[in-house]
Design a protein around this nucleic acid. Structure first.
Lengths: 249, 249
DNA sequence: AAGCATTTTTCCGCCTAGTGGAAAGGGTAT
DNA sequence: ATACCCTTTCCACTAGGCGGAAAAATGCTT
């Protein structure tokens, strides 16, 4: 049903991405379980097209050609997310956002603003640090290297409520995993509260969706009930947008 | 030398990207020249992996899986660009940036700041409109649909120098094509001048690199000589980062 | 509502394009 | 200088992929 060599080429690209965009041939072999000759041949093909690049030490890295298609795809995904974000706005009355983790940063990729007069507005494309945002917390809760991320970024204090202790933050991520949603109680911007839920591709958390608004309005909502509603929407979106991924086991 | 089916799968992905991320099977066939059966089979493979998605009207679109790899690749490219941007800083004494076009926006993907006390600082990841920036102009100069972009974005006045007439702007793009570099004379921010040059993958303009600084300092430089120097650096980077693309003709 | 044109999907025999084990070639650490 | 590890090349085998053409689905026109 599937074309073997294409499948394998994608495996290689993904293996490279998981290793942070760079790996040696044998590292790829270890991860994918493919024979060396095969990997080398497929890499040559990707190399010739600029999807992979070879460094001077003969290691392989993801190449520039992925940027173009990736950018186009990101806008598409943002577009598909809009109806779902609109549902979240309907449910909560507040502005809804979708964000992904890019490196150590949270990047907003789509937004549907609240119809209210007083509302949040975070431009699409904006980058923020994960430790002080609800989406950042859901995104990191799924990763085992959260502590390393905090090590690199530090935990700059944004407001008096920002959590600046690594231990407290890791404990909070634990809570996020357990209850399935994350909060930001004025940690990024004073007077602004957010509630975020994960978007999964069936295997891993690939994005986060959140609603944000003035502290008083958000506090007035029933958190658990809201979270339940948002999770449902995020799950629907996840299976629609990323759903066909990871089949064939 | 190259694996045929992988090459073809990449052709399909690129055809989709060129069509704005969405196309019917026969559109892809027209563009790639591949037989229907073959395209369909390859699309099924990409579909199963989430690299492509099928809409309700049976058309195909780029899928979410590209976002992950694309994001990782973008950071890699930004990293490779740094030594080149550093050379530009050395040459001009001013902050150097690299940016790409994402949809109708210019997105900064890498930066090396000037060592001077008074310097430009535009955060990586920032989005701006193309009409009022030098990088925006080089990026659009290569596209035939620049007028359409301006139609969608409008030409908001950022300063008293911003060009707000479509005709004047299109004429300026013509000039940019001819002389090989673009200027921004306080059109985005008062008192800030920029000079940008294109980065090509050998076929099309895929990014722009620019230097920006206080109007007085930039004016004091010999534009044509500076442009020549920057072009050389940008060309070197282009062939290094995207160079192995488009072989095999 | 029926028929026509267009586009997408399925099928299957042919055979080429891809596979992968193993050996040769490079780098670099000891 | 040598040994080890990682990468690249080679080649005989055959499974995996190819693509023409028919079937099915969709949607447009009359």
């Amino acid at each position: 049903m599937s074309v073997q060599s294409v499948d394998r080429a994608l495996d290689i690209l993904e293996a490279l991405a998981e290793r942070g965009g760079e790996a040696g041939l044998s590292e790829i072999a270890a991860r994918t379980g493919l024979p060396y000759g095969t990997i080398h041949r497929l890499l040559q093909t990707l190399l010739a097209r600029g999807y992979v690049r070879q460094e001077s030490d003969r290691r392989y890295a993801l190449g520039g050609s992925l940027v173009r298609t990736g950018g186009v795809a990101q806008r598409m995904v943002g577009g598909w997310a809009e109806p779902y974000l609109a549902k979240m706005v309907e449910l909560s009355g507040e502005t809804a956002n979708m964000a992904v983790l890019e490196g150590d940063f949270v990047v907003y990729v789509a937004q549907v603003p609240s119809p209210r007069r007083l509302r949040m507005f975070a431009e699409v494309g904006r980058r923020v640090l994960p430790h002080s945002t609800a989406v950042g917390k859901v995104l990191l809760a799924d990763r085992t290297d959260a502590a390393a991320v905090f090590g690199r970024t530090g935990l700059p204090r944004r407001t008096e409520h920002t959590i600046t202790s690594v231990d407290r933050l890791l404990a909070e991520l634990e809570t996020v995993r357990d209850r399935g949603y994350a909060l930001d109680l004025g940690e990024e911007e004073l007077g602004v509260h957010c509630l975020a839920v994960p978007v999964s591709d069936g295997d891993r958390v690939v994005a986060g969706m959140s609603v944000s608004g003035p502290a008083e309005r958000i506090s007035a909502l029933d958190r658990d009930e809201l979270a339940r509603g948002l999770r449902k929407i995020a799950d629907d979106f996840g299976s629609e947008a990323f759903g066909s991924g990871r089949q064939g086991f």
